[in-house]
């Protein structure tokens, strides 16, 4: 569904490419995580996948990037809208500002696509229901909490039934309650939809819950691409500046101090860690 071949991108006036020689594929319907330290190029990659690069942010491209069989560089943002959705960090900045109700806000994308009114009504209702916003339909988008606003931002994209959904650290500005709300919604997506999802996230415990695969980016390059349990417990992660879970850290330290001898696989989640330390205790 997403395919990059030797894709590079350099912002105007910069010597170093922001994305360098990236090649990877995301099969349809898969849920991919994206991690890397600050400045690794995660946001740039998200923008490129959504076509904001090169159509909003200019720069020099090489290689190829196709999403849903569309060559991004040859397309336009208007054509991509509805096929590729983008959600980013600040929920407030994603509210159009031109709608006075949550319902109207969700409908905006479909209106821009010229979808007939009956169909808009159906799709909006369904999406509101799915994203847990049905009771807030007549509220002002500005009267919502951060978590609700971010769910609204996601709903406003989902309603267009995109083939691909790109999320750039969607919970980084939310409190734990808001974060849980957003993840509950994403969880639902995994089961119900054939949407292909790529999410940049630094809360590794969350990624562990439901990603099929994780990409690791550092200085614009792809360092690793594999299942979360392998990739996110790799010492490499910590070396490049990604905070591992405390479970992984505790286990690795236990091993380093010789408290635990046999284990080579380090835990990523609470459940893994419990098993890890319980086994070692016997």
């Amino acid at each position: 569904m997403i395919r990059l071949e030797r894709f590079s991108f350099t912002y105007p006036g910069e010597d170093q490419p922001a994305l360098s020689d990236l090649s990877f594929e995301v099969p349809a319907g898969q849920f991919y995580g994206l991690v890397g330290p600050n400045g690794a190029g995660k946001s740039t990659l998200c923008y490129a996948l959504a076509g904001m690069i090169p159509h909003y942010f200019k720069g020099t491209l090489s290689g190829s990037l196709t999403v849903a069989e569309i060559d991004i560089a040859q397309s336009s943002l208007g054509e991509l809208a509805g096929t590729i959705g983008l959600v980013f960090q600040n929920p407030f900045n994603q509210i159009s500002g031109s709608r006075f109700s949550v319902r109207g806000e969700v409908a905006l994308g479909l209106e821009n696509l010229g979808v007939p009114r009956d169909q808009i009504t159906d799709q909006v209702d369904e999406t509101l229901e799915q994203s847990g916003l049905a009771d807030l339909g007549e509220r002002s988008p500005f009267a919502l909490s951060g978590g609700q606003q971010q769910r609204l931002a996601i709903a406003s994209i989902l309603v267009m039934q995109p083939a691909v959904l790109i999320l750039d650290e969607p919970t980084s500005q939310l409190d734990p309650v808001g974060t849980s709300e957003v993840y509950a919604l994403l969880h639902q997506l995994v089961g119900q939809h054939e949407t292909t999802v790529l999410i940049a996230e630094h809360k590794l415990e969350r990624l562990a819950e439901f990603t099929d695969n994780v990409l690791v980016l550092n200085q614009g390059r792809l360092l690793a691409n594999g299942p979360p349990k392998t990739v996110l417990t790799d010492p490499l992660i910590e070396e490049i500046g990604v905070q591992p879970t405390r479970y992984t850290q505790a286990a690795r330290q236990a091993r380093a101090r010789g408290l635990i001898l046999k284990k080579d696989e380090f835990p990523l989640t609470l459940q893994d860690a419990q098993e890890f330390f319980d086994d070692a205790a016997v």
């Binding site: 943002l77 980013f88 500002g97 319902r103 109207g104 209106e111 010229g114 931002a153």
Partner: peptide, 26 residues
């Protein structure tokens, strides 16, 4: 900074797309 983000969010929802538009409210 905020305006830039808002513009991107609107682009992702087809704000500048060519072609006819519809409306939820009549």
């Amino acid at each position: 900074l905020e305006l830039d983000e808002r513009a991107i969010a609107l682009e992702a929802r087809g704000f500048t797309r060519a072609g006819p538009r519809t409306s939820l409210t009549t």
